[in-house]
Design a protein around this nucleic acid. Structure first.
Lengths: 132, 132
DNA sequence: CTCAGTGCAAAGGATTTGCATGCCG
DNA sequence: CGGCATGCAAATCCTTTGCACTGAG
C-alpha cells in the first residue's frame, strides 16, 4: 500500500474512518458533516488520493452527487440498493449463486462484445422505508 | 403517453431518432453532434421532458458526463458494458437464467433491507477493443 | 532544507433557469 | 388568443486547481 500512497495523514485517516463507520457510500456533504472542520477541497483531494491508492472508490450516482466508499479490498465484494427518492445507498452482498451467474455472464459478454471485462456492478433500484 | 407529454415537436422527435439510431446510450455532446443545430439548453430541456414522459432515461456514469438512452419500454430490458478508459457504453441483453436469478435476488434484497425494489441495473466494467 | 499536505479562493465544466419571442392548437 | 416550446445568456452546482503557507522527515 505504501507503494502507491504518500502519507497516511490525519485527514486521510479521518476520511477512511468516516467511510468505515458509515458502512455505506457517502456523499461529500455527508463526509464533511461527519468530519467537522475539513474544507471541501481537502476532502476531494484526499479522496482522490485514496482512490488512486486503491483504498477508496468513487461511484456513479443517479443524482449528480459523487459518492465514495471503501474499496472492495477492504469492504468485500458487494452491491448496492439505491433509493430513487432520496438517493441513499445501502450495501448488499449477493448470494454465491448469483455471483457465479454473474461471472458466467461476464464471460459471455466478453465473447459477444470484444470487451476485456474486469468486473461488474449490480444496483437495485427502489424506495427506502423512509421515502415509501 | 400523451397523458404525460405535452407535444411531440420536431426537436423531441429528433432526439428520439438520434437515440434510436445509436442503439446505445449517448452523451449530450454525442447527441448534439448528431442533431446539428440544436442548442444545448433545448437538448437538456427536451431530454428532461422525455425522461418525465417515460420515453427516455438518464443513466449514471463513472465520468461526469450524463448519458441518455430510450426507456426500456421502447428498447427492451438490457444491461450495459462500460469502457473504463473512454467511457463508451454498449448495450447487452442478459440470459433468461441470469434475469431470473436477479429477480430472485430482488426479493431477497427487499426482505433484508426493507426497500421496495422496483428494478435492477447491471453493468460490466472493462476495456473496449479500441482502448485495449 | 525539501517536499508533500492543507486552506482559501478562483477557475472549470456540465446542467439549469430567466426571459422574451415564436408557433401550435 | 393562450400556453407550451425555443434560444440565448446568465446563473448554479459540484468539482478541480493555483498559490502561498505549514509541517514532517
Amino acid at each position: 500500500m505504501a507503494a502507491v500512497d504518500q502519507r497516511y495523514t490525519a485527514s486521510r485517516r479521518a476520511l477512511v474512518q468516516a467511510l468505515l463507520k458509515a458502512g455505506r457510500p457517502l456523499t461529500i456533504s455527508e463526509i464533511l458533516a461527519g468530519v467537522a472542520g475539513m474544507p471541501q477541497s481537502s476532502a476531494y483531494r484526499n479522496l482522490t488520493v485514496l482512490c488512486d491508492a486503491g483504498v477508496a472508490r468513487r461511484l456513479p450516482g443517479m443524482d449528480d452527487l459523487g459518492r465514495f466508499e471503501l474499496a472492495e479490498d477492504l469492504s468485500g465484494h458487494h452491491h448496492h440498493v439505491i433509493c430513487a427518492d432520496c438517493g441513499t445507498v445501502v450495501d448488499f452482498a449477493a448470494s454465491d449463486r448469483l455471483e457465479r451467474a454473474l461471472l458466467e455472464a461476464s464471460r459471455l459478454v466478453a465473447e459477444q462484445t470484444g470487451f476485456d471485462i474486469s468486473g461488474h456492478r449490480l444496483d437495485f433500484d427502489g424506495r427506502c422505508p423512509n421515502c415509501s
